[in-house]
């Protein structure tokens, strides 16, 4: 049996780009986790609501992309600020169960809000990227995938630079390291928290716009946000490099699995592969590839 290289290449590019978006969303998670050790389980809903907002701006209001997308970014900043200020700030230093539950509650609320404002079941964003396909050998690759990979790499680069050189980025890393010491140095920890939420929402929004421009906007995006957790788990919760490495792994596993396993298993196998990976990682190496293993003392 000869192997279909064109198909394989197609799967690879699709997997890489989807994986990059997962990694981006996972970065949004890691940002908050690193700064405030809050696990943001509302990520899927944040992705969904920013995609819908983009739809409103670009398709319903008909704004051009260079005006619409900055408005989306401002909306995401605002969303992050509101969530942090009104739901998370009163719960600082509460047990982890409350912190997880409050983000679940936020997710629930956002889901209702989405149904309230956009009761459509599905919609498509206007084309953001050129549509012409690229031919590599026998493979036919849609150009948008390449664009998505490029934009993701740019965002990674920007975030890395931000954390390395910007004052706020350094303050965030310091807060993640030792909150008490940071407070003693006069860094406003609450502002660090709120900035990390705002950034995380923007990153998640970018991820949402990218993934819904490849596919479409539907409730499945919540699941996409949840799939990003498999990236977080595989890469290690507190590791940026982990997210960037694990994202493509998950994306590739998903597309290869969807491409080669569907005929042997049931349909939709593609969508559960990230969740199966979560279970496997949990049993074998719970702290992920790059995560810091915590040793507990009484």
């Amino acid at each position: 049996m000869d192997f279909n290289w064109g198909e394989f290449l197609q799967f690879t590019i699709t997997g890489l780009s989807v994986g990059m978006v997962y990694a981006l969303i996972a970065l949004g998670f890691a940002l908050i986790w690193k700064a405030s050790s809050v696990a943001n389980l509302a990520l899927g809903q944040i992705v969904l609501i920013s995609s819908w907002f983009t739809y409103s701006m670009l398709a319903q209001a008909g704004l051009p992309a260079y005006i619409g997308l900055p408005i989306v970014a401002i909306f995401a900043l605002f969303l992050g600020w509101v969530i942090e200020r009104f739901a998370l700030r009163p719960l600082i230093a509460q047990p982890i169960l409350s912190l997880i539950a409050v983000t679940l509650g936020i997710g629930y609320f956002l889901e209702g809000l989405i149904t309230f404002i956009w009761p459509l079941s599905t919609a498509a964003l206007p084309d953001l990227f050129p549509k012409e396909v690229i031919h590599i050998g026998s493979a036919v690759i849609s150009q948008e995938y390449v664009w998505v990979i490029g934009i993701c790499l740019l965002v990674f680069l920007a975030l890395t630079m931000f954390f390395r050189y910007h004052r706020m980025g350094i303050a965030m890393r310091a807060t993640a390291d030792d909150q008490m010491a940071v407070q003693a140095c006069g860094i406003p920890v609450t502002r660090v928290f709120s900035t990390s939420w705002m950034f995380a929402c923007v990153v998640a929004a970018i991820g949402g716009v990218l993934i819904s421009s490849i596919g479409s906007i539907s409730h499945g995006l919540v699941e996409t946000g949840l799939k990003a957790f498999s990236v977080v788990i595989l890469g290690g919760l507190d590791s940026f490099i982990g997210a960037i490495v694990a994202g493509p792994i998950i994306g590739l596993a998903e597309t290869y699995g969807g491409g080669y396993l569907t005929e042997h298993l049931w349909a939709g196998v593609r969508d559960v592969i990230p969740f199966v990976i979560i279970i496997i990682v949990m049993v074998i190496k719970p702290y992920g590839l790059f995560g810091e293993e915590r040793i507990e003392r009484i």
Partner: peptide, 22 residues
């Protein structure tokens, strides 16, 4: 648009959960 009100219930549920936690 029609059908929007089905979002009210989840919104209230989410709000109630968050408010109780706080």
């Amino acid at each position: 648009p029609s059908g929007f009100a089905s979002g009210v219930t989840p919104m209230m549920f989410g709000l109630v959960i968050v408010l109780f936690l706080i």
